[in-house]
């Protein structure tokens, strides 16, 4: 049985697809057979972030409608043979996703895969709802910014009431906080909500902090998940997150300011 992870946030542009690509790659690199699914029907982008946009033949909707088999639609990643991508449809609209269809695809994937990562679209409409409906774990990606925190709280409400686990009165979805685009220097100046502030408000288990990093744009430019850039801070942050999720005990990093030579001299 696969563990189904939804990467969600409510708000757009906080880093859901970057995170989905990174953690799916991280899990696969550690030897777990992983599939990552783009639920953003009509506005697919996961293929681009994963660098497989030119290899898309069939998509998620084709599989749901029986126009292609799952094996035909799954794209094997070129960096890691344990990782497969199921792209969203670019031409159909979101109504093409049905609960029954998504359920069947996830069930079939569950037989063969250890982890299925569902990259949720922004908003709270059908695509977002179905991305989280079947989940076992939820990675709530939040920016230290008021609208993102508020939307994350709204998603937490939906996760606890509108999921299959909630409807069946099963053990609730495990929720984790991933705080992204974090800038310790701005936190220190009092211009940005701190990790503690966000945790006080959302009361979530912190899986990791991803610092604001140039490497995220560089990675998406080249279509390589940022976790493969092991020298970069964001890449290392995602590496830690995957390790912690798998039960490793790793101290949190990237919360405090990096000290430059100037600050060291002046003891800032």
């Amino acid at each position: 049985m696969a563990r189904i992870i939804v990467v969600t946030s409510g708000k757009g542009g906080v880093g859901k697809t970057t995170t989905s690509a990174a953690i799916a790659m991280g899990l696969a690199k550690r030897g777990h057979k992983t599939a990552v699914i783009d639920f953003d029907v009509g506005l697919r982008n996961l293929d681009l972030i994963m660098g497989c946009e030119r290899r898309v033949v069939y998509d998620f909707i084709n599989v749901i409608n029986g126009e292609a088999s799952l094996n035909q639609a799954l794209i094997r990643d070129k960096h890691c043979d344990q990782l497969y991508i199921l792209p969203a449809s670019q031409t159909r609209d979101k109504d093409a996703l049905t609960q029954e269809g998504v359920g069947k695809v996830l069930e079939e994937l569950s037989k063969d895969f250890q982890y299925v990562v569902c990259d949720s679209p922004a908003g709270i409409e059908r695509g977002a709802h179905l991305a989280m409906y079947f989940a076992d774990d939820a990675f709530v990606v939040t920016n230290p910014e008021v609208s993102s925190v508020r939307d994350s709280d709204r998603m937490l409400g939906l996760l606890s009431s509108k999921s299959r686990r909630a409807e069946r009165n099963e053990e609730p979805i495990k929720e984790y906080l991933l705080l992204s685009r974090y800038a310790p220097d701005r936190v220190k100046l009092g211009d940005m909500l701190s990790v503690d502030d966000v945790q006080d408000i959302l009361s979530l288990h912190l899986l990791g902090v991803i610092p604001e990093s140039k490497s995220v744009l560089t990675a998406s430019n080249s279509g390589v998940p940022v976790i493969l850039d092991e020298k970069s801070d964001a890449g290392q942050a995602y590496g830690d997150i995957v390790a912690r999720y798998l039960g490793e005990d790793r101290p949190h990093r990237f919360i405090d300011e990096k000290k430059g030579l100037f600050a060291k001299l002046f003891g800032g």
Binding site: V146, V149, R150, D153, R154, G190, L193, D197, D200, I201
Partner: peptide, 16 residues
């Protein structure tokens, strides 16, 4: 501004 943001969020989130 961060402490202002936190205060506003705490009130709003509790209400919602």
């Amino acid at each position: 501004s961060a402490s202002l943001a936190k205060e506003r969020l705490q009130i709003l989130v509790a209400h919602e």
